[in-house]
């Protein structure tokens, strides 16, 4: 059981009653302890997949196994292993965060005394303990999202699924949420994340699958995926703009305003030679950043490419 993958999705299909084919036979594997990004444009099938894993959606065919336990055939056993943070707020707004957490534990058969200890622990860790006895509807949007994470932790799942947990959440709250999720991932919990903030996925996740139109169009390690990006654009803030931009081999320089340059170059091109060349032309760089998130650039390319080509739908084992 311990050597089984955290998740095996096997040729999973879902066709809704209105004929919409949301999943077209997808397969993927997530290894134990992984921090896995499940990305895709709106309507790609991510939420359907998560719905099937959490038994909120009935699959049309295929199966998923969580640590070797079939979601279809051993639903109860599989659900014990999963914690779900859904996209939409789905707790009773008139209940108190403490009760929401304790009741959730109760649904998993966890005795009230243990549940109360866990509720205190996770509400504290997610900085909600001072709101534990307030009505949930009084919480801010960010607090509600953190409450759903605390609730999902009540059964101390081996697989935590986060469906766009940071949508509409400010940067400070987002950081504290990731700090918490990183810590539980480091402690051994496998995490699957869907998000539209691709810089989050890039910085947090080790492996990635991209779904589009119900088909997996990419499934690999984050490192390997990012390595396929051959061109990068850097934004350079300069102390003083030269009258004329120098022509540098392998680098295309563009002026965007009187203190900013954009340098587009092959990823094989090293930055030292760029800086040396700029110094030689008396251009002092005061700061530098990536113009766009690398994963975002790849994501757009893959999705657009996928729409112009027949879907692959197969599985590439993540590293």
């Amino acid at each position: 059981m311990t050597s089984a993958p955290a998740l095996v999705v096997d040729n999973l299909r879902k066709t809704y009653g209105n004929g919409v084919e949301a999943l077209k036979g997808i397969s993927l594997t997530v290894q134990p302890g992984d921090f896995f990004a499940l990305l895709g444009p709106n309507g790609a099938g991510k939420s359907t997949l998560i719905g099937i894993l959490s038994s909120l959606v009935n699959s049309s065919s295929g199966d998923a196994r969580v640590f070797g336990v079939s979601v279809n055939r051993q639903r109860s056993e599989a659900m014990k292993l999963i914690g779900l943070v859904p996209q939409e707020i789905n707790f009773n707004q008139f209940e108190k965060p403490f009760d929401i957490c304790v009741n959730q534990a109760g649904f998993y058969g966890i005795p009230r005394r243990v549940a109360a200890e866990r509720a205190e622990k996770y509400l504290n860790e997610l900085r909600l303990w001072d709101k534990a006895q307030h009505q949930a509807r009084m919480l801010s949007g960010g607090m509600k999202r953190r409450l759903m994470i605390a609730r999902a932790m009540m059964n101390e799942p081996r697989l935590l699924i986060l469906d766009e947990p940071t949508a509409g959440v400010d940067i400070e709250v987002r950081r504290s949420m990731w700090q918490f999720v990183n810590a539980i991932n480091a402690a051994g919990t496998t995490v699957i994340l869907t998000t539209h903030y691709l810089e989050e996925a890039e910085s947090l996740c080790r492996n990635i699958a991209i779904i589009d139109h119900g088909t997996i169009i990419e499934n690999t390690s984050m490192k390997r995926l990012l390595a396929t990006l051959d061109v990068e654009t850097f934004v350079l803030d300069v102390a003083a703009m030269p009258a004329e931009l120098p022509r540098l081999p392998g680098v295309s320089l563009r002026r965007t305003d009187e203190h900013t340059l954009e340098a587009e170059m092959a990823r094989s091109h090293d930055l030292n030679s760029l800086f040396a060349a700029l110094s030689a032309h008396s251009i002092t760089v005061t700061s530098m950043r990536n113009k766009t998130n690398r994963l975002e650039e790849l994501f757009v390319r893959l999705v657009e490419h996928g729409r112009n080509e027949p879907a692959r739908g197969g599985q590439e084992q993540a590293a």
């Binding site: 038994s55 109860s76 779900l84 959730q104 649904f107 998993y108 058969g109």
Partner: peptide
């Protein structure tokens, strides 16, 4: 959904 996703 709190109940539906549980093993209950």
């Amino acid at each position: 959904e709190e109940m539906l996703v549980s093993p209950m």
